[in-house]
Design a protein around this nucleic acid. Structure first.
Length: 430
RNA sequence: GCGGUAGUGGCGAAGUGGUUAACGCACCGGAUUGUGGCUCCGGCACGCGUGGGUUCGAUUCCCACCUACCGCCCCA
């Protein structure tokens, strides 16, 4: 094979694209109900937008970014996630301005890029649907965003959903907890796995979700962040939990849940789905949280924010595994069979007439015999086949066959051209 | 970035150091001068991921690379 798509990319072929459109359509409709509006930002940004927001030591920045120098010497990065770009746009376009109704609620969907080893559901170019809401610290907003994520996945027919939440507290909470965690782990340094030794000082919270068995044992007795929450952080989290319960949204609290990006604080959450066909354990399809300092970090006024990102590839995997039924595509209304070269002009006029009348129509383009054309009409699931040959052309009529019943009748060409909808519209609309 | 498995027609899949690379599905054509199904008949890889090497000869052996998949890291 001479040309292959770049490693970690995928072609979405027509058959598959049906599911993509469906997901995007449902997402847009769901977000509209919650009054979120679409925003489209560039697929690449200046490197600093991401290094500043995600944290210079995060894995995303240190090893997973697709970055390069452009011809003008600018350090450019293909966006690895959606939030930073949206926040940059929020600040640059002054959406924090007083004339904007707060909170400003935005959503986006599109490709993201990360330079990493591909696996199923993890590509270098992958797609996320995400939402961001700026300008309110209200726990109500946390809960609405979470509920919207659940609502969307439910509407898409995903089953066995599990919502897991945690809080990272505020800055004060985080530094106090970070210190406590290091104090606890330091004496056990030699017992930690190689990966965790590395993590301990760079990002100690990461040790908490190590997959190493021995690490997990050590971590089991580690202090919990929930014990280090400041009063305000605690109140916020408690309110979120209460409100979720009020909405009958079931959740679990996992105090060891962390985040790969540094900008999160307070509420963080993941929506996971359990499906055996996707291997062991739960798959996270949707993850998000609060980021009250991010807007300021990127040069805007102090503005709280919260959002989530949803992995479309993973969602599709889940939908496949759970055999979610997609809406059936409309069958072909009319297939026009032409017999003989002289009919070419007429078949073209016929399909165009049918299309102009608001129905779908197709014809043969390969000069195939009637039998082959009928076979194709059958495969395309055509409701009606219009046949025209030299004899019919001479008499200015066509044969019209209802495929389901096999019954055929002769109709004047003129009637088809003048009154197609009146004659067959009712039948085809069924 | 690390470790492992794999790569034969559109798809699935057999196979061998040596003349023409099974089979199934799909597709195309014919039997049926102009009608969908079934049946029967016929067609369909100048090639076995790519590039080197070993050999009289390689799809089959060796090396490198590419890609996919699984695990780790990390994550949606």
């Amino acid at each position: 094979m001479k040309y292959q798509r770049p490693k970690g990319t995928a072609d979405i072929l027509p058959e598959e694209a049906v599911a993509w459109s469906y997901i995007e359509d449902i997402a847009k409709k769901t977000f509209a109900k919650y009054r979120f509006e679409e925003i489209r930002t560039p697929m690449f940004e200046n490197f600093e937008v991401f290094s500043r927001s995600a944290g210079d030591t995060s894995d995303i920045v240190t090893k997973e970014m697709y970055d390069f120098e452009d011809k003008g010497g600018r350090h450019i990065t293909l966006r690895p996630e959606g939030t930073a770009g949206v926040v940059r746009a929020f600040v640059e376009n002054k959406l924090y301005g007083p004339e904007q109704i707060k909170p400003v609620k935005l959503y986006y969907m599109g490709p993201m890029f990360r330079y990493e080893r591909p696996q199923s559901g993890r590509l270098r170019e992958f797609h996320q649907i995400g939402v961001e809401a700026f300008g309110s610290e209200s726990p109500n907003l946390d809960v609405e965003v979470i509920a919207m994520g659940m609502h969307l996945l439910n509407r898409l027919g995903i089953k066995h959903l599990k919502l897991v939440i945690n809080t990272l507290g505020d800055q004060e909470t985080r530094s106090a907890y970070r210190k406590a965690l290091i104090d606890y782990l330091e004496p056990h340094f030699e017992e930690l796995s190689e990966d965790s030794k590395e993590r301990l000082h760079r990002n100690p919270l990461r040790v908490l979700d190590s997959k190493d068995k021995n690490d997990q044992k050590l971590v089991a007795d580690a202090p919990s962040i929930l014990d280090y929450l400041t009063p305000e952080s605690k109140t916020h989290f408690e309110t979120v939990k209460t409100l979720l319960s009020d909405l009958d949204v079931h959740y679990e609290v996992d105090a060891s849940m962390v985040r790969g990006l540094d900008y999160y604080n307070h509420t963080i959450f993941e929506i996971m789905a359990n499906d055996k066909s996707l291997g062991e354990g739960d798959v996270t399809v949707c993850a998000g949280g609060r980021y009250n300092g991010l807007v300021e970090e990127l040069g805007g006024p102090q503005t709280p924010g919260i959002g989530f990102g949803l992995g479309v590839e993973r969602l599709l995997l889940l939908m496949q595994a759970q055999k979610v039924a997609l809406p059936v595509q409309n069958a072909l209304d009319v297939y026009v069979v032409g017999i003989g070269d002289q009919t070419k002009a007429e078949t073209l006029k016929l399909v165009e007439t049918v299309r102009q009348a608001g129905f779908s129509a197709d014809q043969d383009y390969l000069n195939r015999k009637p039998k082959a054309q009928f076979k194709t009409a059958n495969r395309l699931n055509a409701k009606i086949v219009i046949t025209i040959g030299n004899d019919e052309l001479e008499k200015q009529v066509v044969n019209l066959k209802v495929m389901a019943t096999g019954e055929e009748q002769q109709v004047k060409l003129e009637d088809v051209y003048q009154n197609f909808p009146a004659l067959f519209g009712e039948f085809l609309k069924r």
